[in-house]
Every structure is written in structure tokens, then in C-alpha cells.
Design a protein around this nucleic acid. Structure first.
Length: 855
RNA sequence: GCCGGGGUGGCGAAACGGUAGACGCAGGGGACUUAAAAUCCUCUGGCCUUCGGGCCGUGUGGGUUCGAAUCCCACCCCCGGCACCA
């Protein structure tokens, strides 16, 4: 009795014991030597957490457990699995929270990291604690800065002006999410736009490759689709509209053609760039040309006016003196809007007439030029030809301002004169389009583009939605951008030998009226000498985006033993690209795209020999609680510590993985944990007085079921089919225990490694009690199955009459049709339905079903 | 509006085009117990039943098929992402 007491399943004891042992024996840690020479490396990555003050969120635990199961499974196959974890602790979240509680982030973050570390150890992940990263450590961000310098030297970083949200009361830059309904979230002042010089990475140069490579990487389809949409390739044409009455001075031609977008899409193969514009100059066309991008060159005959973005550089040149006050007022009004409100689609169209005109090169007609905020400076050329008959936005605008709405496309049942009640954007043939009438839309696109190209007024063009990555943050809590501004030399990179540029401890890190980063008021820090000419110079005071920290962390993990390089070339070649990356789809377009870009850039710069960082990526689902989304404000967040306290980490892990398909998520119901808990208890009690297990071969039926279970798990676990794998183990254990029978060792022992990926602690304990030396994860301990033993001897055949099941018959496997039919006829209920008519047809699916068609 | 992913018992969910609801939760009944907890056994989609079984049932409406939760067409609803992108 006392012994029984002693042997009860107490998760706390078991888990503490094994966590300590893994730690002491370095079960999950790699030495530098082993990293250099693994026998079968497998890099298992999960998205490192942001260490918040609240502690590890159950969503993190869900993700990490799913990834850990995957890593442990590979380990049980005998592979060398490297499974690192770290902390993504820079950024506006930490900074805002620090501001709120009045603690310096340099004090706050270490506390949070310590708490996260404790929690992460407690859930039993197979983490290599000797290879962690903390993005806020100078040892790490030194290399983040190094990365910036590589891109800068490679011509992939540039400084240019861009709009930011500006709160005139707090005198600070706001992120989009800090703007609530056009007001500053802190002081409710209306937010406006301000243009400031910022650093950009030229990710848009990589748009075509980032898109094309998606076809060759093994990623969740949903993630790839999200990236595809984000990159937003669209095929169309660049068209040039002569501006009437404005002479083409060199400056105007420059501003007309050097819009950021024309550069941004420079990577596209169909883009000969701005040369044609110059050529047309040489032909003596003294007219200024206005460039627009369109996906519908076929509708050019319907372009009844033009629209420039209010910020477009040619607005001043086009505006007549009479219209100048109205234009200026409109531009000011737009500038006062925050960036979110600016792009709202549900507001009505506004705009102002510039007084200027273009000539429609197709019709020869004079068409007015307007400015309107529905045209965005950051897309295409920042100007459009407006075709109100066949574009919903233009239609709305033209209706608002009483502009003509010609029809140039007709559906099969329409004519050139069918009135347009709304923009028609469907297929059809051209009308009112001169020689191009009757052509189908698709053909007209290329024909019209070619026709205009002959006159130097068009070229085919591929445009991308993806815009350059602004990495400047006018904030405190991030790595300082390693640049020195010198009056004479311009922006000069900090020499690599002087890295890191250490973020100074600034007690007052609140944004203030200086208008830039808090670092801009630490004179002792920003005053320096130009690394090139030695004259007094000023450090860049902006810090870099948190997404830069996380765009390369997976490169650092295996090389954290190396203080002298960002990543060791040999080790990197050995371990990367990452074999399996599991994470949330909320990072589908930012983190995952930036990481791909950085990898591609480092590849081109000669630092890496691969250009895609993650060979395989799987997005996990989201978990909700009792049917509702979890959030702090609802107060329905699952707090992991008490649950682990009561049931143990193994049960918690098992339950999380049991909730539903890992890639779809699940509903956390507090009561539900009883199921997995009971399962572990029963498993323990089935095995634990090991002396109580019977010897001998397994029961034949159980043996078959065991092999089926092993087969199923071997197939499903690597595909993240966790919930059904767990169900299969439960089913098997139920079968072993039916009728309270005494289990044989041979029946239950293989269940231990099957369970190990999910519940590593109890698996280790049972494995040890069963007499094995060392950790179950050291060695290829996953059981094999024998395909020959999967097969049943008898099957239950469903017998249908006219597609409805009327009975079943038990038959030996492989019974022929004739015999099966005879047995079926012998079933009284089947015979009854058979008697209702004449047997017309027999469908026999051996070992499954017999369908008798009667009429 | 566009792009994904989904709609199956009271609930979470299973189901190579072949017996819908495995596994688990919750619930009913029973055993053990002085009692409770724990544990174990057992039942549990709905309606009807002469207890043999029958009818209905996977968001809705059509279609293909001997046979559809599964494939095709149209539509409705929910979740996630993007969105004045020319």
C-alpha cells in the first residue's frame, strides 16, 4: 500500500527530475565541436518570443509545443536536432510598456527575459540554452548594425523622405497603431503627416525574385498566398501624356520621371527605365510628358481626365494661378490627415482641379488634370489616367465632379451607346476607340500599348505593390543605425571595427519636442568625428526597426559561440537553410518576407550560399478559449503556470496538441484537460509497477493494433497531424486495458517512445523504469512497424441495398465477390430488402462494401 | 471588394468517393465508499419502434455517381489577412 502511494503519477516530481537531468547532462545542448560536425543535422526553428511583462502567453506555448514535438520526433529518428530559442526584446511594445510603468527598459527586459526563461524551461522544450539570442544585447545588435552596413555598402540602403504620422502636441512620430480614429492615442490631438528623411532598404528591387521563389519553397499555401498578395505584381503599361502649355525644362523632366516608384520597380525585365522620356525630348517634343501606370491601356480612349497625387512633384508646374489657392488648400487638407485616414476607402471622393491640361494621345483631346487623395504617391508613378467608364473609383470621382464618363468597352449584349450606370470592369470588346473598335479587351491591351510605344508614349511594364522597407524609427528602444552624418562627406558608415554603436542608457527616454529620436538630445553621445575626414560630425539618432532584429536571428543561433563574426561560414553551410520553421501566420508578410529579403541580399553580397532561409515553413492555427478570442481586456487569457502546477507540463502539452488540427488551431476548454490528464495517469498506472507487467508476446489483436498505431503516427507526426495521433494512442491504450486486463510489457513498452514527442518527461521516466539507460532522445528509439502485421484477418463488410446499409457481414480478408454475395443474401434484413425487386447490379469493393442495386 | 481557411451531435473534433460522428469533454445510469473525491463499468445525433429494425441527418439549393461530409456549379454565414494598388 505504501509502495502504491509512492508510485502514483506525480507530474511535478517527474518533470523537475528530468528537466534537471537534461540540464546537467547537456542532453539538448550542442558543443561547438558538435555544431561543426553533426552526423545528421536538422535545424528546427520556432519564432522567438517578445518577452512581455505578462509572461508566456498560451499562444506561444501552443506554437512552441507544436514545434518541439516536431523536433523531438526527428530526434527520435536519430537526427541531430538543433532547437534554439531567444528573445525579440527591442521595439515599441517594450518601450511603451516601460513608459507606462515608469521603469527603464534596460531594467525591465532582463526581468521579463528571466521570467520567460523560467517558463520556457518548465514546458519542457528541447531548447539549446547554450545558443540563445537576446536582440537587445550589444553582442547581438552589433551584428544587426553590421548587417545594416553590408546593405549600405551594397547600395541596398538609402535615405529619402517619407511621410510619417506626427502628433503636433506630443511632438513625436506615431506608429499607425498609435493613431486611433485620426487622433493621437495618448493626447487625442489630430494627427498629421510630416515628411522626414529616413532610411530605406530596397526590398522592392527584389520583388520579382521574392515572388518567383515562392514556387520552389515548401511553405504553407496560405503564407505563400499572403506574400504573393503583398508583393502584388500587376502587369500593364507605362503611358505618357503630353502636358499642354508646359515646357519641358530639365528639372521638370527629372521630377516627372524620377519618382520613387520608377526606381523602385527597376528590377523588372520589361522596364527600360526613363531613357525613352529623354529620347522623346530629343525628337523635339518640347512638351512635358506625364507618366502614368495602368493595367488597362485598352481603355485609354476613355481617359477623360488625369489625376495626380497631391504630393506629386509636377503639381506646381501644372497649376494655373487662378487655381493655385484651391490646390494649395486641398494639399494642406490632405497633409493634415493621418496616414490611416488617408487610405480609408469608404470616404467620398475629394479633389481639386489644377487648371492644367494634358492631351490624350489616343483621342487627341484636351483633358483636365486634377489632384485627389485617392491617388497615392507611393504606388505606380503617383499619377493616373482616369477612365471613369471602367474604373469604380474614377467613376465615383467623375460623378462627384461632373466629369464626362465615356464608354469604351462593351459587354456582348451592349453597344457603344449603352448608358453606364456604374463602371463596367468586365470583359468585352472596345467601342468608341477608333481603329481598335471590336477588339477584345485582352488583345487591345497589347495592341494599344504597341501602337503608343511606336510614338514613344508607352511601354509594357510590370509594377509591384511592395514598397521599400523603411527601417528608421524615431524612437529610443532599438539598435542605433550605425551612420555618422558629416557636413562634408555626407552619411558615412561607422567602421565595422567600431561596432557596436552602443545604445546609451538614457534615463529620460520619453519622446519630446525635439522632434526626433530621444537620442537626439544626448549630445555627448551623438557628437562624434567623421570616420572619413575627422571633422566634427553627428551620429544618426534614429534606431532601426525591430523587424530588422528578427530578420536574421536564425543565422546567429548556431554561431553564438563566435564573437568575431555574425555567423560562422562553415557552421552556416552545415545547418542552414532552416529545415523546419513553425510559427504564426500573423508574420506571413512582414517578418517572413524581411527574413527572405535579408537572406537574399546577403547571398548577393557574397555572405551566404543560399538565398531562401527556410526550406519548410508551417503556419500553426490560433487557439481561442471557450469559443471566444483570448485577450487581456476580456480577462479570459489562459495562465499557464497554475495549469502546469496542477496537471504538469506533459498534460498541458498533450492537451494543447489534442485541441484540434495544429495548423488550424482549437478551442481551449478548461474542463477538456481532464481527458489527456486521465490518459497519462492510466498509462502510468498500466506500466508503473514494472514488475507487475506480464511477459510474453502481445495479444495478436493488440499487436496488429499496435503496428497500425505506429504506422499512423509515423505518417502523421511529421505532417503535424497531432490531434489524431494522440487519439490513436488513446484508442490503443483503451484497447490494452479493456475489461481491466493486465497489460503485457510487449504491448505497452512501444507506446512510450510514441508518446515521447508530446510528453517528454513522463516518457523519460517510464523509459527509465522499463530498464533503459540514458535519455530516450539519445538514439533512434522510435519503434518500427511491420507492414505485414497491419493487415486484419477478418473484416466487417457493409452490405447496402440501393446505397443504404442494410446489414454487415464478417468475412475473411480477400473474400471474393461470389462468396460475399452469398453471405449477404443470408442476412435476413438484407434478404428482406432484396425481395422488393430484381437484382440489377452488384458493386463490390473488396473488404469494404457490397452494394446491391435492386429495381 | 479581393485573397486564404472554415461551417459535421450539447461542445472540441474524426472520417483514401464506400457502415458519418473515431478520440475526448460535458451529461445520464451503475459499481466501489459510512459519505464525498478519485477510480472503474455502461449509455449518449434526432424522431419512431412490435426492440427485428425504420425514417431523417454533415450551412442552403442544384448536379455528377451504384454510392457524396468528401467531387462540380450557384448561394448564405463565420474566422483570418489585404484593401482607393490605378
Amino acid at each position: 500500500m505504501a509502495n502504491e502511494q509512492h508510485d502514483r503519477y506525480t507530474p511535478g516530481t517527474v518533470e523537475a527530475k528530468w528537466q534537471a537531468r537534461w540540464e546537467n547532462e547537456g542532453t539538448n545542448s550542442f558543443t561547438l565541436d558538435r555544431l561543426r560536425a553533426p552526423s545528421d543535422p536538422f535545424y528546427n526553428l520556432m519564432m522567438f518570443p517578445y518577452p512581455s511583462a505578462e509572461g508566456l502567453h498560451v499562444g506561444n506555448i501552443y506554437a512552441f509545443t507544436g514545434a518541439d514535438v516536431h523536433g523531438r520526433w526527428h530526434r527520435l529518428q536519430g537526427r541531430d536536432v538543433f532547437e534554439p530559442i531567444g528573445f525579440d526584446a527591442f521595439g515599441i511594445h517594450s518601450e511603451n510598456f516601460a513608459l507606462k510603468v515608469g521603469t527603464h527598459p534596460m531594467d525591465l527586459i532582463p526581468r521579463n527575459v528571466a521570467n520567460f526563461t523560467r517558463q520556457l524551461r518548465r514546458i519542457g522544450g528541447m531548447f539549446d540554452w547554450n545558443h540563445t539570442v537576446d536582440t537587445t544585447s550589444p553582442d547581438y545588435y552589433r551584428w544587426t548594425q553590421w548587417l545594416f552596413l553590408q546593405l549600405f555598402k551594397g547600395g541596398l540602403a538609402e535615405r529619402k523622405e517619407a511621410p510619417v504620422n506626427w502628433c503636433p502636441s506630443c511632438m513625436t512620430v506615431l506608429a499607425n497603431e498609435q493613431v486611433v480614429g485620426g487622433l493621437c492615442e495618448r493626447c487625442d490631438t489630430p494627427v498629421e503627416q510630416r515628411r522626414i528623411a529616413q532610411w530605406f532598404f530596397k526590398i522592392s528591387d527584389f520583388a520579382p525574385r521574392l515572388l518567383e521563389n515562392l514556387a520552389h519553397i515548401d511553405w504553407s499555401e496560405t503564407t505563400k498566398k499572403a506574400q504573393e498578395n503583398w508583393i502584388g505584381r500587376s502587369e500593364g503599361a507605362l503611358l505618357r501624356f503630353p502636358v499642354l502649355g508646359v515646357e519641358a525644362t530639365p528639372e521638370l523632366v527629372r521630377s516627372a520621371t524620377e519618382s520613387p516608384q520608377t526606381e523602385g520597380t527597376g528590377g523588372s525585365a520589361t522596364d527600360p527605365g526613363t531613357a525613352t522620356a529623354d529620347a522623346s525630348q530629343e525628337e523635339g517634343t518640347r512638351e512635358l510628358l506625364l507618366e502614368v501606370f495602368t493595367t488597362r491601356p485598352d481603355t485609354i480612349f476613355g481617359a477623360s481626365y488625369m489625376v495626380l497625387a497631391p504630393e506629386h512633384p509636377l503639381v506646381d508646374a501644372l497649376t494655373t494661378p487662378e487655381q493655385a489657392p484651391e490646390v494649395a488648400a486641398y494639399r494642406e487638407r490632405v497633409a493634415r490627415m493621418d496616414l490611416v485616414a488617408r487610405k480609408k476607402t469608404d470616404k467620398s471622393k475629394t479633389g481639386a482641379f489644377t487648371g492644367g491640361y494634358c492631351r490624350n494621345p489616343a483621342t487627341g483631346e484636351r483633358i483636365p488634370v486634377w489632384i485627389a487623395d485617392y491617388v497615392l504617391m507611393e504606388y505606380g508613378t503617383g499619377a493616373i489616367m482616369a477612365v471613369p467608364g471602367h474604373d469604380e473609383r474614377d467613376f465615383e470621382f467623375a460623378t462627384e465632379f461632373g466629369l464626362p464618363i465615356p464608354r469604351v468597352v462593351a459587354a456582348p449584349d451592349e453597344t457603344a451607346d449603352t448608358p453606364l450606370a456604374e463602371a463596367y470592369t468586365g470583359p468585352g470588346h472596345l467601342v468608341n476607340s477608333g481603329d481598335f473598335d471590336r477588339l477584345e479587351v485582352e488583345e487591345a491591351k497589347s495592341r494599344i500599348t504597341a501602337w503608343l510605344a511606336e510614338q514613344g508614349l508607352a511601354e509594357a511594364r510590370v509594377n509591384y505593390r511592395l514598397h521599400d522597407w523603411c527601417i528608421s524609427r524615431q524612437r529610443y528602444w532599438g539598435p542605433p543605425i550605425p551612420i555618422v552624418h558629416c557636413e562634408a562627406c555626407g552619411p558615412v558608415p561607422v567602421p565595422e571595427s567600431e561596432l557596436p554603436v552602443v545604445l546609451p542608457r538614457v534615463e529620460d527616454f520619453k519622446p519630446d519636442d525635439s522632434g526626433v529620436s530621444p537620442l537626439a538630445r544626448v549630445r555627448s553621445w551623438y557628437e562624434t568625428e567623421c570616420p572619413e575626414c575627422g571633422t566634427p560630425a553627428r551620429r544618426e539618432t534614429d534606431v532601426s526597426d525591430t523587424f530588422l532584429d528578427s530578420a536574421w536571428y536564425f543565422l546567429r543561433y548556431p554561431s553564438t559561440d563566435r564573437g568575431d563574426v555574425a555567423f560562422d561560414p562553415e557552421i552556416t553551410r552545415t545547418w542552414l537553410p532552416v529545415d523546419a520553421y513553425i510559427g504564426g501566420n500573423e508574420h506571413a508578410v512582414l517578418h517572413l518576407l524581411y527574413a527572405r529579403f535579408i537572406t537574399m541580399a546577403l547571398h548577393d553580397l557574397g555572405h551566404l550560399d543560399f538565398e531562401e532561409p527556410f526550406a519548410r515553413f508551417r503556419a500553426h492555427g490560433m487557439i481561442i478559449r471557450e469559443g471566444a478570442k483570448m485577450s487581456k481586456s476580456r480577462g479570459n487569457v489562459v495562465v499557464p503556470d497554475p495549469i502546469i502546477e496542477e496537471f504538469g507540463a506533459d498534460t498541458f502539452r498533450l492537451y494543447l496538441m489534442f485541441l484540434g488540427p495544429f495548423e488550424e488551431g482549437g478551442d481551449y476548454r478548461d474542463q477538456g484537460i481532464q481527458g489527456p490528464f486521465g490518459f497519462l495517469k492510466r498509462l502510468w498506472e498500466t506500466i508503473v509497477p514494472v514488475e507487475g507487467l506480464a511477459e510474453g508476446d502481445p495479444d495478436p489483436d493488440l499487436e496488429r493494433k499496435l503496428h497500425q498505431t505506429i504506422e499512423q503516427l509515423t505518417r502523421q507526426i511529421p505532417e503535424l497531424g497531432y490531434n489524431t495521433s494522440i487519439a490513436a494512442m488513446m484508442e490503443y491504450l483503451n484497447a490494452v486495458r479493456t475489461g481491466g486486463r493486465q497489460a503485457r510489457r510487449s504491448e505497452v513498452e512501444p507506446l512510450v517512445p510514441l508518446l515521447a514527442p508530446f510528453c517528454p518527461h513522463i516518457a523519460e521516466e517510464l523509459w527509465e523504469r522499463l530498464g533503459h539507460e540514458g535519455s530516450i532522445f539519445e538514439g533512434a528509439n522510435w519503434p518500427a512497424f511491420d507492414p505485414a502485421r497491419l493487415v486484419e484477418e477478418t473484416v466487417t463488410l457493409a452490405v447496402q441495398v440501393n446505397g443504404k446499409v442494410r446489414g454487415t457481414v464478417d468475412l475473411p480478408v480477400g473474400t471474393d465477390e461470389e462468396t460475399a454475395l452469398a453471405s449477404a443474401r443470408a442476412e435476413p434484413n438484407v434478404a428482406r430488402f432484396l425481395a422488393e425487386g430484381e437484382l440489377r447490379r452488384v458493386i463490390y469493393v473488396p473488404d469494404r462494401l457490397l452494394n446491391l442495386v435492386v429495381a
